[in-house]
């Protein structure tokens, strides 16, 4: 049974936490895109200079800011939300590990696995999102 006191909208606190999370997260994404643009324009990753390896890993540095944002977000949310987040992360981690093992064996069998990292990342991230959505719905 519902009443006019039942609202599915976010509370003031929810909005404040979401706002703080986005404020924390956004610099990491903006930094990642900015560095990625620089790498694409000037990195010369197809070249032969040893510096290309340094260029190749540069976009990772700003994403560390995203890790910090997630850690701070976990500190702000309550026990129930932490549990939902953990369930989603557990699904994402499990799928990423299984994908890594699968990709590893396919590589041993001779399949070209140059995109292995991206496949594992995509599988883990997608599973995290789906796992979190399913946890929230239960």
């Amino acid at each position: 049974m519902t009443s006019e006191l039942d609202s599915s909208g976010a509370s003031r606190g929810d909005r404040a936490r979401t706002h703080a999370y986005l404020n924390d997260f956004l610099p990491g994404i903006v930094g990642y895109l900015a560095v990625l643009t620089l790498v694409v324009l000037f990195g010369n990753l197809d070249g032969t200079s040893p510096l290309r390896f340094l260029w190749a890993v540069l976009p990772v540095i700003p994403t560390l800011w995203c890790l910090r944002a997630v850690a701070r977000h976990i500190g702000r949310i309550d026990d129930f939300q932490q549990r939902l987040l953990l369930q989603g992360l557990a699904v994402g981690f499990g799928v990423a590990m299984i994908t890594a093992v699968t990709v590893g064996f396919l590589g041993i069998a001779g399949l070209d696995m140059r995109l292995a990292g991206w496949i594992i990342f995509a599988a883990g991230m997608l599973a995290w999102i789906l796992g979190a959505a399913v946890s929230a719905k239960r």
């Binding site: 039942d6 929810d14 939300q81």
Partner: peptide, 25 residues
């Protein structure tokens, strides 16, 4: 909560939890 005329969001703010948590409770 309804006896106090509060929405789930209003109660969530007073308990410093999310509205989703109040609903789950």
């Amino acid at each position: 909560r309804e006896g106090h005329g509060w929405t789930q969001g209003a109660l969530a703010d007073q308990l410093d939890v999310s509205r989703q948590t109040v609903n789950a409770l």
